[in-house]
Design a protein around this nucleic acid. Structure first.
Lengths: 248, 248
DNA sequence: CGCATACTTGAAATAGTTCAAAAGACGTGG
DNA sequence: CCACGTCTTTTGAACTATTTCAAGTATGCG
């Protein structure tokens, strides 16, 4: 994984936002100048806890971050996965008291950006405020899709859908190719994201591998047949809103 | 169900927002003056479709609205329930191309408010923009909680959680008492919200009734023991963010 | 009164879980 | 470079929560 500078990390974030929202040159420049205040840091497995009141938002620079909740018997549920270029807790900007936790699933580096800087920026450049908000809406779309997968589709379809979604999201962030992307997640953690037991997830992955559709390796995913993967997962990328629809 | 005027409907919405965000007198007045342009209307069972490009957002005046998605085999998944005072598609303000549908679950009246009016208002009163955005964040919190329920808890706990959540949300919107609220939803539709089959939901409701915890009647829910309901559902209202946390 | 819609109950089937243990990968220190 | 412990993946077999299919009973409406 290429080590990257703070500017490169922020540029990745800007490009992501710009996919969905038109962002002026000045706003982009202002955002790029921001990180002078922060440093990239390695994070612990657990770096945002339930009940924390946040004053910064975290941009994933490299690695993989999960947002998760827990039931009383200790079962964990991953409700979002964030890849480099994502800002997993952007919405703490308007709701700083968090009710979930963030967790690095592998050696991960992040950039913490103070809320007040983001707020000033959003005030000076209203298109940024819209872009941030829209990003949260897409996050919610993803979550809605996960709910459908978990609630109303069988295990094979759910897993196929997630692997297809992550492929498209990696490409949107300028990561990976159309048939491979880095995905350093264990089967146990992946099981928490698709709401299966690790044992059953393992069997589903085996089946997808034997059917020559997709191979989940240790730290990456190799897609052998995207068309069949998308078909198996009933995957339609519309909910990711990867086209800029700001035109009236 | 009391028929209410457009102003009363909007006031319900404002009060809801004001629970979580401080909103100035002027902003409240401006919002209240808005609906002069719209009329309350009855809606069909299906009134927003996948792929629609919205130019208005719908405030539920009375009745019950579900946001849902569908799998290819026709199974339906309800990903949000909106009660009077809610604006189920507020986020179409920043993402007008919708990827889900809205559906009235009973005779329902709504108020359609044009996006451009809401946008002007948000520009003139920045606290309203924040309040709108924060409302979306809470919607996403609710969805995350549903994902946990559906994915990692058993049927009884999931159903208990939903009934407890709806109780608290009704009270937050100024509807219902602490032991009863209107909930005009069929078991089939409720089953789609908790990702169970109607048959199994029926058995779970029977058990909750026999255990003297809660009774789901035709058009309402009677809570016999909220403490045990909350316990059965592992319900903690923190994710609903019903306290105003704008203080720094 | 009859038809449609919603709710309830029973019995059989199954997708996914649970428990248990083996096999493989990986780093660390001797 | 091999031995060792730890973590992850894989496989087997028994079990169970939930689904499916099917039929029956209310409830309400024209």
């Amino acid at each position: 994984m290429a080590r990257c500078t703070t500017k490169e990390a922020v540029a990745m974030f800007i490009n992501r936002l710009a996919l969905r929202s038109p962002i002026g040159k000045q706003a982009q420049a202002a955002l790029l100048d921001l990180p002078a205040v922060s440093e990239i840091e390695d994070v612990e497995r657990d770096f945002v806890h339930v009940g924390d009141r946040l004053s910064h938002s975290c941009l994933v620079v490299d690695g993989l971050v999960a947002r998760f909740a827990q039931t009383q018997d200790g079962a964990r549920s991953v409700v979002a996965l964030h890849i480099p270029g994502d800002m997993g807790d952007l919405f703490s900007l308007v709701a700083p008291n968090v009710t979930w936790a963030l967790h690095a699933l592998c050696p991960t580096r992040i950039l913490r950006i103070p809320h007040h800087h983001l707020r000033e920026l959003a005030e000076q450049h209203p298109e940024l405020a819209t872009a941030f908000w829209r990003d949260n809406v897409v996050d919610a779309n993803i979550l809605a899709q996960w709910t459908v997968n978990i609630g109303r589709k069988d295990a094979r379809s759910t897993v196929a859908h997630l692997l297809a979604e992550m492929a498209v999201r990696h490409q949107a962030n300028g990561l990976g190719s159309d048939h491979e992307y880095g995905f350093p997640i264990t089967q146990a953690d992946l099981a928490d994201a698709v709401a299966l037991t690790p044992v059953h997830l393992n069997r589903v992955l085996k089946r997808l591998r034997e059917d020559a559709i997709v191979i989940k390796e240790n730290t990456s995913v190799r897609i052998m047949d995207f068309a069949r993967l998308a078909h198996a997962g009933e995957f339609d990328p519309a909910y990711l809103q990867l086209t800029c629809d700001d035109r009236p």
